[in-house]
Amino acid sequence: MGKYDFLIVGAGLYGSVFAHEAKKRGKKCLVIDKRKHIGGNAYTENIENINVHKYGAHIFHTSNKKIWDYVNSFVEFNRYTNSPLANYNGELYNLPFNMNTFHQLWGVKTPDEAQAIIKSQIEKLNIKEPANLEEQALSLVGTDIYHKLIKGYTEKQWGRKATDLPAFIIKRLPVRFTFDNNYFNDNYQGIPIGGYTALVEKILDGIEIKLGVNYLSDKDYFDSLADKVVYTGMIDEFYNYKFGILEYRSLHFENEIIDSSNYQGNAVVNYTDSETPFTRIIEHKHFEFGTQPKTVVTREYPKEWKKEDEPYYPVNDDKNNKLFKLYSELSKKESKVIFGGRLGDYKYYDMHHIIGLSLKKIATLFNEPDSI
């Protein structure tokens, strides 16, 4: 018997929620993380009295009232609504694609006018069976929206030409024929007041934490500390890349403190042309309606993932999914280790998904009914 009931590897949302719920059930937990902070990729750092999203914009949104009530039981969330803008060579367009976008593109004022233009463009292309992402997108939204608002951004994001990307990446494109700039359709949306670090601090209240320690560098020792291990890192790294390396897209961030109270007037502006090297600029103060005298902006540059980089977006193509399946089958044979989270499942999740999965895992382990 170890000193702890659970060793949780990773202080992100999955591990933190798991630790909180296990503690509520009388279990002793130790949470470790190789980073020197809690919160995983949702971590926010206070710079110039602004909560800066250090690993890219995180907007909490869900239609699950139980999960919304759950996170609000720790901290209060504000009413932030994600309404990004697109900058195409200096032209500004509202996102997601809606009547404001269509008015900016074509000067139309009614849904019928917008639908007629999109339908006409799609019909002229005569694409029956899309062979790649470009053809898939064109067959959904036509030429103008594709070339100004999708092509450049997507090719930068994936580091490949749209004609070389599989069609399944874009299964659908949300097109709204209403004047609605709200990016998400969920019932609940907001940012924790005081930032995500404040949220995770509350979740981990009373739980022992060790930061700046690497589980895999001394696995036998850490395994000896607990009866069970909850592992939220990369599943292929856990198995020392036995079957090969799972691919990810990564990001590089450039932060700038600007001596101005308002740089771009919006939290998120996407740069959809191919010439601009970054995909978007985030102005963090707008997530919390800040009035600070200075502002902090972050330019986001996608890049190919290498072992020393942070993995962000799994490349869920056929090759990688087959590889993950091998690791997944191996993980099912583990009696001591529980795999979870984005890296453990090799799947991109939103934050509400991660919290829900962690709560479901707790319910399963403790033989409780699933309440989510």
Results as ranks from 00 to 15, higher is better:
residue 2 G to C: 09
residue 5 D to V: 07
residue 9 V to K: 11
residue 14 Y to Q: 04
residue 14 Y to F: 13
residue 15 G to N: 10
residue 17 V to N: 02
residue 17 V to G: 04
residue 20 H to G: 00
residue 24 K to C: 02
residue 26 G to C: 08
residue 31 V to W: 14
residue 31 V to Y: 13
residue 36 K to D: 08
residue 41 N to T: 14
residue 42 A to Q: 08
residue 44 T to H: 07
residue 45 E to L: 14
residue 47 I to M: 08
residue 48 E to K: 01
residue 48 E to S: 03
residue 51 N to E: 15
residue 52 V to L: 09
residue 54 K to H: 02
residue 55 Y to M: 04
residue 58 H to V: 08
residue 58 H to S: 10
residue 63 S to H: 12
residue 70 Y to Q: 10
residue 70 Y to G: 07
residue 72 N to K: 05
residue 74 F to E: 07
residue 77 F to W: 13
residue 80 Y to S: 11
residue 85 L to A: 05
residue 87 N to T: 09
residue 90 G to L: 06
residue 93 Y to P: 15
residue 100 N to Y: 15
residue 100 N to K: 14
residue 100 N to L: 12
residue 105 L to N: 01
residue 110 T to F: 00
residue 116 A to W: 07
residue 120 S to N: 14
residue 124 K to P: 02
residue 125 L to C: 07
residue 131 A to G: 06
residue 132 N to K: 04
residue 132 N to I: 04
residue 136 Q to R: 05
residue 137 A to G: 02
residue 142 G to W: 03
residue 143 T to F: 11
residue 143 T to E: 15
residue 145 I to V: 15
residue 147 H to P: 08
residue 148 K to F: 00
residue 155 E to S: 05
residue 159 G to M: 10
residue 159 G to L: 08
residue 159 G to E: 11
residue 164 D to Q: 11
residue 166 P to D: 13
residue 166 P to G: 12
residue 168 F to C: 05
residue 172 R to Y: 11
residue 178 T to D: 15
residue 183 Y to F: 06
residue 184 F to S: 13
residue 186 D to L: 09
residue 188 Y to L: 06
residue 195 G to M: 06
residue 197 T to L: 09
residue 200 V to S: 05
residue 202 K to Y: 10
residue 207 I to A: 05
residue 210 K to G: 04
residue 214 N to H: 06
residue 214 N to P: 06
residue 220 D to E: 15
residue 223 D to W: 01
residue 224 S to E: 12
residue 225 L to M: 00
residue 225 L to V: 00
residue 229 V to G: 04
residue 230 V to E: 02
residue 232 T to C: 02
residue 233 G to Q: 06
residue 234 M to C: 13
residue 237 E to Y: 07
residue 242 K to A: 14
residue 247 E to Y: 11
residue 248 Y to P: 06
residue 249 R to D: 11
residue 254 E to I: 10
residue 254 E to Y: 09
residue 256 E to L: 11
residue 257 I to P: 10
residue 260 S to N: 12
residue 261 S to A: 11
residue 263 Y to N: 08
residue 264 Q to S: 08
residue 265 G to Y: 07
residue 265 G to W: 09
residue 266 N to T: 09
residue 267 A to S: 13
residue 272 T to F: 14
residue 275 E to R: 09
residue 279 T to I: 13
residue 280 R to T: 10
residue 280 R to W: 15
residue 281 I to S: 09
residue 286 H to K: 01
residue 286 H to C: 01
residue 288 E to G: 05
residue 291 T to D: 12
residue 292 Q to E: 15
residue 296 V to A: 11
residue 300 E to H: 09
residue 302 P to N: 12
residue 302 P to A: 08
residue 310 E to Y: 08
residue 310 E to G: 03
residue 310 E to D: 15
residue 312 Y to D: 05
residue 314 P to F: 04
residue 316 N to Y: 08
residue 317 D to N: 15
residue 321 N to H: 00
residue 322 K to A: 12
residue 323 L to D: 15
residue 331 S to I: 01
residue 333 K to C: 02
residue 333 K to Q: 07
residue 334 E to P: 01
residue 334 E to I: 00
residue 335 S to W: 01
residue 335 S to I: 02
residue 336 K to P: 08
residue 343 L to A: 02
residue 351 M to H: 00
residue 351 M to N: 01
residue 352 H to C: 10
residue 360 K to V: 06
residue 366 F to L: 09
residue 366 F to A: 03
residue 366 F to W: 14
residue 367 N to G: 14
residue 369 P to C: 12
residue 369 P to L: 08
residue 370 D to K: 02
residue 370 D to I: 07
residue 371 S to P: 03
